[in-house]
Design a protein around this nucleic acid. Structure first.
Lengths: 347, 347
DNA sequence: TTGTATGCGTTATCAA
DNA sequence: TTGATAACGCATACAA
């Protein structure tokens, strides 16, 4: 069966040309879908290609074209689940194409990030890169990429680039919805655990929070907003600050699930019942939300679908699908209601 | 500064040759560390290379060598944390080298897995691949890879290949240790939630469990072993079976953390206090273990370190470090004691 | 519509 | 120890 090609598909374009009785160039045209080709010739060559199982050598193509068929995924993100879901979505879009995915985690703090990334895309002659937040928020990086002649698509929490360069979720509106849900349940004293400064997502989510409150005519002191770092531990620490308020909030929106889990943990340490005495909503819909007790209400954003969209935008031009135009840029999130939200205590 | 090379490092080997006043081949020899080279010539060329910031074109090298400088990571694994930690470890080893990592999740159930993987490594002329469990347990795949002339390193729960092709953790011993810990606390009725059939890790862990029991002279009915699928839900289901025993176990070893979290969840539903009435130990030391309440005692295996080792084994031959020989093959795990284990209830 | 000659940047062969 | 020249497999002018 796979005996022949397992050892080595030493078939080259020359072999096909000879077998088909045409020149290399004609075969090359078939491969690259050149429009000016005799229907009959094309069919004949395609049949040979199919029969022999010939696959063009990617390295040779890369050299001749001056460009590789590799998509780079650049990120500096602590959230494993997010990164892997993104990879999954991208790979779904790449499946069946000649493209492969090369991963590149970088160190945001290192100072040489830009040079690192740039060296990477230039050396490898990448077809394009997908950049994950928060790295994607850097306009400087986008400009550098552009100057280097490297296609790119940025993932983010807001539209901060052209349609063809951006895939975004609408965090602000999603959070506003979540907080409205809390308000609808009767909550008035709602705390926020914000994400770290410098993260666009943190800003968007915070604004969504404030938007919902002001809509409802609720005005809260600044102390109801606690700083977090998107980590479990910071969620615990921020909770302590919120619990110390008097009266304390009856509900907390944490800007991501890790911190929401921290709130839950802190509440348990304090003997606060969730959701009876305290409601909690997180963001991301990680698996964690269903593992803890009670299962957390959270906001789900379509990570894999966004990854797929980003990849399609990137390779769309190649496939000739005019993909960039048709691929959606703004994805909306949904509130996933589980068991961590209830009306506030009567008190 | 990086102004020159940011746009395009159009420098080729010819430029360097001209600048150094030598032939292309000589430059090539310098790049490839050929031993037969005049010391003085080499130094001169190396200086030029450094000054100009010249980097050889990977595509051209790949074409000429008939081999790419890409390492493939092949897996079909539900555990995001594991996969990403592995990626991290591998990339650590690859940092600073000319190698890049290409990821390839596959569908174990699809039937065409082997062809998919083989096509992948052959088409891309991969330097080598790292295979994650449970795919790595397939001797057939290893043989196919070998026949295709593709280097490979398998990750696993036991040594099932030569030293140069295998990086393993010692799951059996690790689990035995965990169960001994339970026994030392006074537990006699200990339940096991096993992993799915066909997983070598499941088998190893089960054997470790049985080993510890028999050492202690404990003999339990078959019903104390429940089948699991390495998923949270299967952990819940298996727990129900164990809880239904009379008398039920006072401790449960779950073959991974996801299932251990399931046990915790099921216990809560039943109103069983952990660890007062039931002790739990998991396996993997995922972040989840510290997010739930109480934090889970578990077995930690050095995923990233093993990934690093695997990568070094692979590229060791290239770097001339004779790495395969020096890189360790068997890694040992450690029991991480948290709060889900206590002596059994007095009753 | 198809073929010929040439280039892409590197390594390998073999002679000097 | 070095260098001229031919691969490597494909794509792009430019002809035919």
């Amino acid at each position: 069966m796979a005996k022949d090609d397992s050892a080595a598909p030493k078939l080259t374009i020359n072999d096909i040309a000879r077998l088909a009785g045409v020149s290399k160039k004609t075969v090359s045209r078939v491969i690259n879908r050149s429009p000016l080709l005799n229907r009959e010739t094309r069919d004949r060559v395609e049949k040979i290609i199919l029969d022999t199982g010939y696959v063009p050598n990617p390295q040779a193509r890369a050299l001749a074209l001056g460009r590789n068929f590799l998509i780079g995924l650049v990120y500096d993100n602590p959230n494993a689940q997010m990164v892997l879901s993104m990879q999954r979505g991208i790979l779904e879009a790449l499946r069946g194409t000649e493209f492969e995915l090369v991963v590149r985690p970088v160190d945001r703090g290192s100072g040489a990030v830009m040079d690192d990334i740039l060296g990477f895309v230039i050396r490898q002659r990448l077809f394009g890169v997908i950049v994950l937040p928060p790295l994607s928020e850097s306009d400087a990086l986008a400009q550098l990429l552009d100057e280097a002649g490297c296609r790119y698509v940025r993932m983010g929490s807001a539209l901060l680039d052209d349609n063809e360069h951006m895939v975004a979720s609408n965090d602000r509106e999603a959070v506003a919805d979540a907080v409205r849900h809390l308000i609808a349940q009767g909550h008035q004293r709602i705390g926020l655990i914000a994400g770290p400064h410098g993260f666009r997502s943190a800003k968007e989510r915070r604004e969504g929070f404030e938007m919902a409150l002001s809509e409802a005519g609720i005005s809260l002191p600044r102390s109801f907003i606690a700083d977090g770092e998107y980590t479990f531990e910071s969620g615990i620490a921020a909770s302590e600050n919120l619990f110390a308020l008097s009266p304390p909030p009856t509900a907390i929106f944490a800007s991501n699930d890790e911190m929401a889990a921290g709130v839950l943990y802190a509440a348990r340490l304090r003997g606060i019942d969730v959701p009876e005495q305290l409601s909690i909503i997180g963001f991301d819909d990680t698996p964690l939300t269903t593992r803890v007790w009670p299962p957390l209400t959270t906001v789900r954003w379509p990570i894999a679908a966004m990854g797929r969209s980003a990849a399609l935008k990137l390779i769309g031009t190649a496939v000739g699908d005019q993909g960039e135009a048709s691929e959606p840029s703004l994805f909306s999130s949904t509130l996933i209601r589980r068991s961590s939200v209830a009306p506030p205590p009567a008190s």
